[in-house]
Structure formats: C-alpha cells, structure tokens
Amino acid sequence: MSSKTMNIVQSINSTLDYMMTRDTSIILLGEDIGIDGGVFRVTEGLQKKYGKERVIDMPLVELGIVGMAIGMSLTGLRAVPEIQFQDFIYTAFDQIVNQAAKMRYRSGGEYNVPMVLRTPYGGGIRGGLYHSQSGEAYFAHTAGLTVVTPSNPYDAKGLLIKSLRLNDPVIFLEPKKLYRSQKQEVPEEEYEIPIGKASLVHEGNDFTFITYGSMVPTVMNTVSKNNLDADVIDLRTLVPYDGETILNSVKKTGRVIIVHEAPRTLGMGSEISAFIAERAIDYLLGPILRVTGPDTPFPYRLEEHYLPNEMRILKAVHKMQQYR
C-alpha cells in the first residue's frame, strides 16, 4: 500500500485533483482559488491543470459564489465553492439556508444540490475577529445540511471523497490552524470515511473527551502528556453526529468533557451534553463539562487566552476528579 507524507493542505489539494480527474462534473469556484491557488494554497495548480472554466476565479461576492454553485449543482454539475474564510460566509447565509439546504425538501425531492462548500474556520493564526471564527453551530442548526470537519490529513481525504459523492449540500469546515501543522501518511489509493462516524483516537477508562476539528491535537497532547486514561472522540461529522460512539464511551467512563473552539452558548457542546443527559444520565459520575471558546468576539492579540488549551482542559479534569 503506497502512501505519501502530507499535511492537510496537500491532502485536500491532491484529493480534489484525484476526484476532478475521475468526476468531470466537479467544478471549483471561489476568490483567488485559480491563478493564486487560494490564500492557503489549497487549490494550488488545479486551474493550470483543469482550466479557467473549471477552476473559476470569482468576483468578490460570497452570496454569488454560493448562489452560482447552487445553480450549477441543480443542473448537472457538482460545485465545490470555496469561501476564503468562514468569517466571510454570512452574506451567503440566505443562499445556504434558504436555497441549498431546503431545495430537496421544498421540491418534494425533484431537485437536489450536490455541493461541497469548503471553508477554513477557527483561530490560531493571529487572524483577529474576522479570520478566526468557528461558526459551525449556525450550519448544524439548519435542517438539510451535512456538516463535516476533519482534524488530520488522512481523514481530510476520506471525508472529502465521501462528501463529493453525496447528493446533498455539505459544509466542509477545514481547521486552518492545522492546515500545515501536522504531517501524516496518506494512502495514494482512494478510500471513503463514512459521514456520521466518529473516530476513537485514544482509548481509556476514566474520561470521555468529545472534540473535533482544530481542537483534536490540543486534547490529544493534553491526554498523552498527562497520561490521562481517557477516550478521545474525534466527531469528524457534526451533522449527523455519531451518537452511538458517544454513548458507548460515556457508559464506560461516566465522565464527559467536551472541547471546542466555538463560543460556549449553543455550541455543539450544548447539543452533545443534552444528548448525553437524555440517554445516559444514570451512567454519569459527575456533571458534563465544556471547555470552549468564551462568548466574546475572537481577539487578535489575546487569542491564546481565547483558545481552549492544556491548562483549561486540565482544570476541567481536576474538577471532574472530585466526582468518584
């Protein structure tokens, strides 16, 4: 089995390339994605290979990028719009929520929108308020959207291939902080990672950490550095999330700590903790704890205080250790 060492940027780039060669209906559009290869270089070289008509440099209009992608996806193409930073997506929110997400339902299944909307999200790159947001909850709250976020190069490939084969809109959130921070062996042959299936990236008995995307390495480092006997669940898909894997782990450990970068109020952690409380409260040995970004805008100079880190995770661990 041949493989290559890659970071997430290289993994997504080569996967797009692989899929575009095999599925001629795939078409890319976004700001600076062509000649410039994208501001994070995720689409580097693709315009040169596939042409300006298939890797489209777009005028500066997010609602137009997504709107056009929807129209393309309604008419025989499989559009992959890129929103340069997730922070810029909001003018396209109407298109995402009221067109893409509802098309299959409102047309009684006559129409569907096979679109994979890629966008880098999250902080950790000194981007301040408008280059750091984690808005996954907005999308997770909308019926009709599948929300995916890989945390490593291997998963990025398998999740992207699977997303590009779904016949419904996918919000593909790429943790930009991790774009180049880690390398991993990525098999050259194709493979799919199923939607709705979490990955148990570390196994143990005392704690269940539930996390995803940019926070996975932070949690993993904390666990290994401190020899915590813990399950770490990387959700990978936020909608639909993997309830089964969560429950199996919670029933084993009885102690749950949910970690995400997005603000706490009504973040994914709220949903997951309600889900656990509804179905496994008898197994819990202590309260469900959340370690998340605060309910503040994302600060520029103080981002290391905003982002959940080892110290804050350990604080939750110590609090949890009081419950036996």
Binding site: I27, E53, R54, L63, G64, V66, G67, M68, A69, I70, G71, M72, S73, L74, T75, G76, L77, A79, D94, Q95, N98, Q99, K102, M103, R106, S107, E110, Y111
Partner: peptide
C-alpha cells in the same frame, strides 16, 4: 425550478445554471 419565499434569492442560482449550460 422550485419557488422560495425570500425574493431574488433565485437569481444567483439562475446565473450558476447558465454557467452550467455554457460549460
């Protein structure tokens, strides 16, 4: 196509469909 309530949100998809036809 399928009609939505929020007016004019059908217009950008219409442009995408035209791109599709041309492409």
């Amino acid at each position: 196509m399928s009609v939505q309530s929020p007016v004019a949100t059908n217009l950008p998809p219409a442009v995408g469909a035209a791109y599709s036809i041309k492409y």
